[in-house]
Design a protein around this nucleic acid. Structure first.
Length: 218
DNA sequence: ACCCAGGTGGCCC
DNA sequence: GGGCCACATGGG
């Protein structure tokens, strides 16, 4: 990345506007793990319904999922898109974890890069999902890049919208404080901004994001 | 009737 | 390495 982007300033302005978010909607590591997969290419509303339904059916556990009937689980999470595919992936993932580690806790005890590599080896988990799990479920510092982050960095700072995931991630990780809460909250701020103000695609000059950026001085 | 959502894997060249 | 496509549901 050639130009200097004032990431700390960007963060402060977003935080002043939205308040401290420090967020992932989920209470347990298992819930966050599952939610990270369910939310791929889906609105969080659909995910919420699916998680709620899993709880109701006692299906939100590694034991249940690893020994489930895929069609049954697919029905339980039916409100999210790609439910049958995700049901299959989830089962395989938790079979892997249960047989090779015994628990999420043991899996998360791996060193960060080993954990990332292991997560990426599982079908259904790519860069963003792996990093969301590492950051929010395992509680290790890893900067999550998502579509909103790319879109906003492109819109506001003109970075290449097709920039590679790791490249943008490295840029953030090399230019902000190494602080877990900052990593969590910064990503949350991007999502909040993107969700509320950046719905149009492709992004046109009339996108409300422009107005907000002006308002908060980006 | 479109288009989109907090991606990913498979297949092609 | 990049360029497509399937995956499937709910909301605007």
């Amino acid at each position: 990345m050639t130009h200097d982007i004032p990431l700390e300033v960007l963060y402060k302005k977003l935080r002043n506007h939205f308040g401290f978010l420090d967020w992932w909607p989920g209470e347990t590591p298992t819930e966050i793990f599952v939610g990270a997969i369910l939310t791929q290419r889906n609105s969080w509303k659909n995910v919420e319904k699916a998680i709620k339904n899993m709880k109701k059916n006692n299906a939100l556990s590694i034991r249940y999922i690893s020994s489930c009937n895929e069609q049954v689980l697919a029905k339980i999470i039916k409100t999210v898109g790609f439910s049958s595919q995700k049901s299959r992936y989830l089962k395989q993932i938790f079979i892997d974890i249960l047989t090779n580690y015994g628990s999420l806790e043991n899996l998360f005890a791996l060193k960060k890069e080993a954990l990332r590599k292991k997560l990426l080896s599982m079908k259904g988990i790519g860069n963003e999902t792996a990093d969301s799990i590492i950051l929010y479920a395992a509680g290790k510092r890893k900067f999550v890049i998502d579509a909103y982050t790319k879109r906003i960095m492109h819109r506001v700072y003109g970075i290449d919208e097709n920039i590679k995931y790791e490249k943008l991630q490295d840029y953030f990780e090399n230019n902000i404080k190494k602080d877990l809460r900052l990593y969590k909250d910064f990503h949350a701020q991007f999502v909040e901004l993107g969700k509320n103000y950046c719905k149009t695609r492709p992004l046109c000059s009339a996108c409300p994001l422009n107005l907000v950026c002006r308002k908060i001085g980006l």
